[in-house]
């Protein structure tokens, strides 16, 4: 196949970026999107040109490193999949694809398709944990957990922190990401004592980072590679309301 790419090239955070066109021939349907970029990058490197920078690591759709927009859709056209698992058989010979980085004020572009998502780490640092020291844990089976709750907690915990939800949201909100962690821990008895504080602190940090607010578009769920439900946002809103009313701050 021959694919034409319009790739956002930006040499540094301060530099002005622009789309650059590349024709890539000899693309196999069995290649992943990132392998196609590897092939292009090898060609660029051989000519001494700077390869296209993009974050990636496991290439199994679990580490959450990769992600960019393909023709305006976060992680591209396939459902519940990251760009590293998107294969070129999703496209056809002669297709023209526009690749651009996540666009959000809280995710500044570092280079080309690579953005700085450290705001997500700071949201977790604000309260996305159970305060338990190593060694102070009780016997694991001492606290039974309703299977339905454990399963729902797992659904929320499956978030890979890729940032697609923010990129897809017209408001660049981080509600799906934040609510997934608030719900995961809030659903478990181990996370119950800090449930109020966690919701308040994580949402406050989210606002501080410059993410927008949720206006119920549902774009986040549509692009989430792990299929995390917007119901968790509703759940976090309830937690936040209750926590605000009960708060002694």
């Amino acid at each position: 196949m021959k694919i034409t790419l319009n790739v956002w090239r930006q040499s540094s955070p301060q530099a002005a970026g622009a789309f650059v066109k590349y024709d890539v021939d000899g693309v196999s349907a069995d290649m992943s999107m990132l392998e196609m970029l590897d092939v292009l990058n090898d060609r660029l490197e051989s000519k001494g040109e700077a390869p296209i920078a993009f974050d990636h690591d496991c290439r199994e759709g679990i580490c959450g490193s990769c992600g960019f927009m393909i023709n305006g859709v976060a992680h591209g056209p396939e459902k519940e999949i990251t760009v590293c698992q998107t294969h070129m058989r999703s496209f056809k010979d002669g297709d023209e694809l526009t690749l651009e980085p996540w666009r959000a004020m809280a995710f500044p572009v570092m280079r080309d398709l690579m953005v700085d998502r450290s705001a997500f780490d700071r949201i977790i640092q604000a309260g996305g944990y159970v305060s338990v020291r190593t060694g102070s844990a009780p016997e694991a089976n001492a606290t039974p957990v309703m299977k339905e709750h454990a399963d729902m907690a797992f659904e929320a915990a499956a978030c890979i922190g890729c940032g697609a939800c923010v990129a897809a949201c017209p408001n660049a909100a981080a509600m799906l990401f934040t609510s997934a962690k608030v719900s995961h821990l809030g659903l478990l008895p181990q996370g119950a004592p800090e449930r109020d504080k966690r919701a308040l602190d994580m949402v406050a940090q989210m606002d501080k980072e410059g993410f927008g607010h949720c206006t119920n578009h549902g774009e986040c769920e549509a692009v989430c590679p792990k299929g995390i439900s917007v119901n968790f946002i509703a759940r976090m809103n309830r937690d936040l309301l209750k926590a605000t009313l009960r708060s002694t701050r």
Binding site: V130, V132, S136, A137, A140, T143, A150, D151, Q190
Partner: peptide, 14 residues
Amino acid sequence: IDQAVAQGVPFARE
């Protein structure tokens, strides 16, 4: 296992 469960690791349950 005790430590992970206390942290909220959602292991499979019966």
